[in-house]
C-alpha cells in the first residue's frame, strides 16, 4: 500500500467572482522510501500541491490519505498535531527564526513533544550531526552561509523523524556547490534513513538525483 494516496484532487482559487483553477482530478501514489521529484513551469501549482499534502491549505475537492489517515478530513487542531508528527517541510528561503540559534531552530519541533530537555538535546545534536553542522550549533542564521542555513532547516525538518519530507525548491536560492551538498544530503536521508521525499525543483540536475520525475503542467500530472 502506498504511503501517500491522492485521489481526484482539485484546487480552484476564487478571486472575487473569478474562479482560477490550478489543477483538477489529480491522482498520485507515493510509496514508502521513494524519492520523487516534481517539476513544472512557474504557476503550474507545485507549491499549491505541497501545501495541500501538508494540510496547510484546503483542496476544493478530493482526498489526501497519508499512512491510512485522511488528511483532508482533519480539523485544524488535528492537522497541527498530525504535521508535527508526520511532515518535515523545507522551504526555498530556509525560513529559520533569526532570533534563535541553529540549535534552537532545530529544537522547535521537539518542543511540541513530551521529550525531556536531555532527550531533546540528544535528538537535536544527532540531527545537526546528520547535516554536518554540529560545530555551528550556537550560530545564529545571519552568521551562516545560505547553504548552511538550508542544512539547519533540513535538520529542523528531520529532527522529529517525520514520515514524509516535503521540499519546495530547496536549492533555488543556492549556488551550484551548496545546491549539490544539499541534494547529496537529501539523497543520504533517502538511502540511509529511508525517508520518503517529495522534492519540487526547476533544476534539471537536481531532478536527476531523484528516483522518478513527475511533471505538472496546465493542471495535468504525468509520471
Amino acid at each position: 500500500m502506498a504511503l501517500l494516496e491522492i485521489r481526484s484532487l482539485s484546487k480552484v482559487y476564487q478571486r472575487d467572482s473569478q474562479a482560477i483553477p490550478v489543477f483538477e482530478n489529480i491522482d498520485l501514489d507515493i510509496d514508502t522510501g521513494e524519492f520523487l521529484v516534481l517539476m513544472g513551469p512557474s504557476g503550474s501549482g507545485k507549491t499549491t500541491l505541497l501545501n495541500l499534502i501538508a494540510g496547510l491549505d484546503e483542496p476544493t475537492t478530493g482526498a489526501i490519505i497519508v499512512g491510512g489517515e485522511e488528511v483532508t478530513a482533519m480539523s485544524r487542531r488535528q492537522l497541527a498535531a498530525w504535521r508535527s508528527d508526520h511532515v518535515g517541510f523545507i522551504f526555498q528561503l530556509y525560513n529559520l527564526l533569526p532570533v534563535l540559534t541553529a540549535y534552537q531552530n532545530v529544537e522547535l519541533p521537539l518542543l511540541l513533544t513530551h521529550l525531556s530537555k536531555k532527550e531533546r538535546r540528544e535528538h537535536v545534536m544527532t540531527a545537526l550531526d546528520v547535516v554536518g553542522l554540529s560545530d555551528r550549533a550556537d550560530h545564529f542564521p545571519r552568521q551562516l552561509s545560505g547553504g548552511q542555513e538550508q542544512r539547519v532547516a533540513i535538520g529542523r525538518a528531520i529532527v522529529s523523524d517525520p514520515t514524509l519530507i516535503l521540499a519546495d525548491e530547496p536549492t533555488g536560492d543556492l549556488d551550484a556547490k551548496s545546491a549539490d551538498e544539499i541534494l547529496t544530503l537529501m539523497q543520504r536521508l533517502n538511502r540511509e534513513f529511508d525517508k520518503t521525499i517529495l522534492l519540487v525543483t526547476h533544476d534539471q540536475r537536481a531532478a536527476e538525483r531523484g528516483e522518478a520525475i513527475m511533471h505538472l503542467d496546465k493542471g495535468v500530472l504525468t509520471r
Binding site: R77, A80, R83, S84, V87, L97, L112
Partner: peptide, 16 residues
C-alpha cells in the same frame, strides 16, 4: 507573521 506561519508548518497549534 511569516515566523508564525513557519511555526504552524512545524505543527504549532492555534492554542499554543
Amino acid at each position: 507573521a511569516a515566523e508564525v506561519a513557519v511555526l504552524k508548518t512545524l505543527g504549532f497549534g492555534d492554542r499554543l
